[in-house]
Every structure is written in structure tokens, then in C-alpha cells.
């Protein structure tokens, strides 16, 4: 049975195993590869997408849980790479390899929605479970502050 949800503001219907994680449905069936697989157990945040505006880990969420919901991936964050958080990310030259950055950016977007002027502690708390092996953390912090201005 097809599962329907709104993906980046577009009605989407995918005929997949309802238990398949949302991550693989988005990547392999909807063809949007900006959302990344990394740990598979919801500890690194590379697969973060926004569901009704809140960050969720798509690697452990069955696609059936997205039925009827609105999902935003990195591809849907803005039309021209110009969301304030994306602009701040480019200004602070955050990414190195870039693989975790969709998850970093979407987690930061959700943080700034809740707290438009986050403190250092707010940033640490919100971003502590979004891992980066390249070590872009000092710039993630800088970019979030830039975006909050």
C-alpha cells in the first residue's frame, strides 16, 4: 500500500514496505540524496529531516510514521540555497567533507525556530548529538550565531 506525505511541499506517494525507514524511502525511492545515512541508530544526526518543522532522525523512523505529515529535507529548505542558515553556513565556511551538513543545518534551523537568539549552552544542547568527523564544530557555532542576527 502506498504511503502518502508531503515532501518539500509536494504531495508524494511511495509504494514501499511501511517498515522501511523514512531515510531509505526518501533517498532510494523519492530520489532525494541530500539526506544521509551514517550510524543507522539515531545517534549521529546525519539523517535529520524536519517533520512538521521538528527535527527527526529518519534512519530509525518507519516511513509509515510520515503518512499524512509534512517532511522537509535539505533540498526543500529553500529554493536558491538562501535560507538564513544556509547563508550563514556559507559565510562561515562551515563544511569540510560536507556529509553531515544537511543534518547540521536542519538541526540548526529547528533550534533557531525555537530560540531565535540561542546561548552557547542552547547551541551545545541542541547540536550535541549531531556528529561531525571533520570537526567543523567551531564553525557550526559561529554560523548559528551569524544566522541568529
Amino acid at each position: 500500500m502506498a504511503i502518502s506525505f508531503k515532501l518539500n511541499n509536494k504531495e508524494t506517494s511511495l509504494d514501499v514496505d511501511p517498515q522501511m525507514p523514512l531515510l531509505w524511502a526518501i533517498r532510494d525511492y523519492a530520489g532525494l540524496t541530500g539526506t544521509k545515512f551514517s550510524c543507522g541508530i539515531a545517534v549521529c544526526g546525519a539523517c535529520t529531516v524536519l517533520m512538521e518543522g521538528a527535527p527527526v532522525r529518519s534512519c530509525v523512523m518507519p516511513v509509515s510514521a510520515a503518512a499524512g505529515k509534512s517532511i522537509t529535507t535539505i533540498e526543500g529548505l529553500s529554493k536558491n540555497n538562501d535560507h538564513p542558515v544556509q547563508k550563514a553556513w556559507i559565510e562561515a565556511q562551515v563544511p569540510q567533507c560536507g556529509y553531515c551538513q544537511s543534518g547540521q543545518i536542519l538541526s540548526a534551523v529547528a533550534l533557531l525556530e525555537r530560540k531565535p537568539n540561542p546561548t552557547d549552552d542552547d547551541i551545545d544542547n541542541a547540536m550535541n548529538s549531531v556528529l561531525c568527523r571533520c570537526g567543523t564544530y567551531p564553525r557550526v557555532r559561529k554560523a548559528i550565531k551569524l544566522a541568529s542576527k
Partner: peptide, 12 residues
């Protein structure tokens, strides 16, 4: 390469 890594378009 950085703008390609902020909008999901970079291909790995």
C-alpha cells in the same frame, strides 16, 4: 564546493 554542501546537491 561549500554551496553544494549546504543544499544537498553535492554527490557522494
Amino acid at each position: 564546493d561549500i554551496p553544494l554542501k549546504t543544499d544537498g546537491s553535492a554527490k557522494f
